[in-house]
Design a protein around this nucleic acid. Structure first.
Length: 540
RNA sequence: GAUUCCGUAGCUCAGCGGUAGAGCAUCUGACUUUUAAUCAGAGGGUCCUGGGUUCAAAUCCCAGCGGGAUCACCA
């Protein structure tokens, strides 16, 4: 807890005793360390109240009091851990059943199971599980006595000798036990764990304590992000941070969250994309930058959408969208191997997806033609294209431009069938205001979106570097906004000015990391890969 | 936002008009090389909330709250 005040007090320690407990906390903040320790070493108030109570809680509090009565602090400060469960399991993999070692270790973790009146405890730490054996042969009588007051859910430290029991369980023969934190609430059922999705999301810690699958998902999420960082820094990309509070919400077509800065009396938006700031850094001379970023979009929540989500945006000067395709493949294939035992194939539901590079590449209009038989490049007029779409059974919004019509048909007819990884290339200019016009077709841009499992997982362009064209595109977006499209982009004149100083030809790439984690962990919902997904607030 | 399904003990779930149930967890005791430990016993409920129908509602109907799924918007 931050202690911001340096103010000292002349109050004598003795005076503290007459203060009510709640008031003491306030005072802690301005005390010297010495005085703080004096206060903290005082016996804490008898713990009798939790936020709500029942017989199960009371039973644990009783055990806590028993420990205190024996002089045990149920919430001590530290413990010297010398080994982790999984390391021990691996190290002694070949230890024979019934064999002893001479290795004395100290482990710490949560009691997950308690058998034979505590003689056998399953202890779990961050890496895995190990059994603890408490017996009068090695454990002093007073500790054997304390063991009665240990409960499932308590966090304890254990020191002892590693052995393997005759039935084959790697075990520590406890010579010393130490209560490290008393749990006063019952853990969920040990066999089934937490199934209630609401508890899983609102009290993620309970999900993590009880469900190995959830722990594994979040470990893989971390490994995937670590891999992305590793491959990019290995290729001389520089990790940077750009603002999350934007005076203009740019870089994507989306509804922003808005807020207000009091001191500046200024409206600010939570960023919908870091794109325009990252490009400013490229203009500044950082030729290869990336940001693993949280974005915020004030839109619907679904199995694939959370209001805040994580992506990585990458910019590489002197590269184009072809380079970005191969970079996408390197990142995704490599991340897949990193969490999938070196394999490029993963199961997702009843599907198998193979991320092995190179991926297929097809243009958007080509795929639309494959599905509908209509070559929309021969119908460049928006109204005629919309008419054709209607004949295909896909109504478009009135006033849609050509690109929006093509995109709508693509979304309706093609998208869901893009199961194996594929780059959809050369998207319409109308829907790509930050991408460079295609070098051979003025209605298209050098932009691609990568799909897998029917989901967009990456979006990239040869970045638009021409300030005159960029200004024109922004103006088109502005007129779309005026016509009621509240997701059209805002005009960012400062960004155009930056382009006027000269931006090198640049390839830019964004990858949705939550969706990538979903694919690589066989997770059906984005809420299963975001530790604390956005939920409605509930007051208990 | 629309449609639809769900909400019962701390957890996982049965019950679906007629006295509120099981397993785990908890408590008491037994046992002591177990591993979803076992054995004997006990306690534990706002059946999400509020209305309604009925002799009788956890159960049927309506509304609300929360959650899931699908759709729309979107990545």
């Amino acid at each position: 807890m931050p202690c911001r005040s340096t103010k000292s007090s002349a109050s004598a320690p003795a005076a503290m005793n007459i203060l009510k407990p709640a008031f003491r906390i306030t005072i802690w903040c301005w005390k010297s360390n010495l005085l703080k320790e004096t206060i903290m070493s005082q016996k804490p108030a008898a713990p009798q109240q939790v936020t709500d109570s029942n017989a199960l809680v009371e039973a644990k509090i009783e055990n806590l009091k028993h420990l205190q009565a024996r002089g045990v602090n149920p919430f001590p400060y530290r413990f010297d851990v010398s080994a982790f469960a999984d390391d021990l399991q691996k190290k002694h993999e070949k230890l024979e059943n019934g064999a002893m070692t001479e290795e004395r270790v100290s482990v710490a973790g949560r009691i997950m199971a308690y058998r034979n009146s505590g003689m056998f405890i399953d202890l779990r730490d961050a890496t895995g599980k190990i059994q603890i054996f408490s017996h009068k042969q090695s454990l002093p009588p007073e500790l054997l006595e304390q063991l009665k007051f240990y409960d499932i859910g308590d966090i304890i430290g254990v020191t002892g000798i590693v052995r393997r029991t005759p039935p084959g369980e790697l075990t520590i023969n406890a010579e010393k036990l130490e209560m490290l934190s008393k749990s006063v609430r019952p853990l969920p059922e040990k066999y089934h764990g937490i199934h209630d999705t609401e508890i899983k999301y609102r009290q993620r810690y309970l999900d993590l304590i009880t469900n190995e699958g959830s722990r594994e998902t979040f470990r893989k999420r971390s490994a995937i992000i670590a891999y992305v960082r590793q491959i990019l820094t290995g290729e001389q990309f520089m990790e940077v941070e750009t603002p999350m509070l934007h005076p203009i919400a740019g870089g994507a077509n989306a509804k922003p969250f808005s807020t207000h800065h009091n001191a500046l009396d200024m409206k600010l938006y939570l960023r919908i994309a870091p794109e325009l700031y990252l490009k400013r850094l490229v203009i500044g001379g950082f030729d290869r930058v990336f940001e693993i970023n949280r974005c915020f979009r004030n839109e619907g929540i679904s199995v694939k959408h959370n209001p805040e989500f994580t992506s990585v945006e990458i910019y590489q000067a002197y590269a184009d969208y072809n380079d970005m395709m191969s970079l996408t493949e390197r990142i995704v294939e490599g991340a897949c191997k990193a969490v999938n035992h070196g394999q490029t194939k993963v199961s997702f539901g009843d599907r198998e997806i193979d991320f092995k590079a190179p991926w297929a590449r097809k243009t958007m209009v080509e795929l639309v033609q494959e599905k509908t038989g209509v070559d929309f490049t021969t119908i460049p007029d928006a109204a005629a294209a919309a008419e054709k779409a209607k004949l295909l059974g896909i109504p478009t919004k009135p006033g849609s431009n050509w690109g929006e019509v093509v995109e709508a048909i693509f979304a309706e007819k093609v998208e869901a069938e893009l199961i194996q990884p594929i780059h959809i290339v050369d998207l319409p200019k109308d829907i790509s205001p930050l991408a460079k016009v295609h070098r051979t077709n003025e209605n298209l841009t050098e932009r691609f979106e990568s799909y897998a499992n029917g989901w967009e997982i990456a979006n990239a362009f040869s970045e638009l570097t021409d300030p005159f064209d960029q200004l024109a595109r922004f103006k088109d977006q502005m007129s779309a906004r005026e016509k009621g499209n509240d997701e059209a982009q805002m005009l960012d004149e400062d960004f155009v000015e930056a382009l006027e100083y000269g931006m090198p030809p640049t390839g830019g790439l964004g990858i949705g990391l939550d969706r990538l984690v979903m694919l690589l962990t066989n997770s059906a919902s984005i809420r299963d890969v975001i530790a604390f997904p956005t939920l409605r607030h509930v007051t208990k």
